[in-house]
Amino acid sequence: MLNKKGIVEDWLPLMLLIVVLVFLFFITMILKIGSEREQIELFDKEQDKIMAQQLLVGYLRSPFSTGKNLADAINEYYLTRNQLLLDEIKRKTGQFFSGSELEEDTLSWDLTMNLPSGEEIEITPLEREITPPTRAFKIINVAVDTPTSTPNKIIRLNLWVFYTKILA
């Protein structure tokens, strides 16, 4: 019979190997769980993005005045640079989004239009910009293009959605 020390010495390499294998197995599992979590987060963001895009198209199609939608009004602003028209667009924008899924305590949004001339114009109504101090932890950006009266010129609307935490 082997003595106790002898038994430990004989089985030591195998035991070490088992420890290493168990360790590797755990590492692999942790890595897998991490990548799955990343995928789920990505999916969540994609779903939010789809929602934001649908909202933006709905916004552009929404009526502005008789026979005219908001995309037409934006095109008209691009042609005329009428400040009163821009104010009215901002008012309608606030009205539209305040009744949408984006009007929540933990969400904030910002809408800009990029004109073909390269200018970026804010269409977020002023009252939206005054919010309590918040910290954004996730930001989603979606863009929709709308044509202008000039065929090769496009206005791009950028909607930014901020998922926020209110700071105490």
Partner: peptide, 18 residues
């Protein structure tokens, strides 16, 4: 493919949305 256009970053407390 998914995720190509997603942006995610943190805004620091100092630059928080005001």
């Amino acid at each position: 493919e998914l995720g190509a256009e997603i942006e995610q970053f943190e805004i620091s407390e100092k630059d928080g949305l005001q």
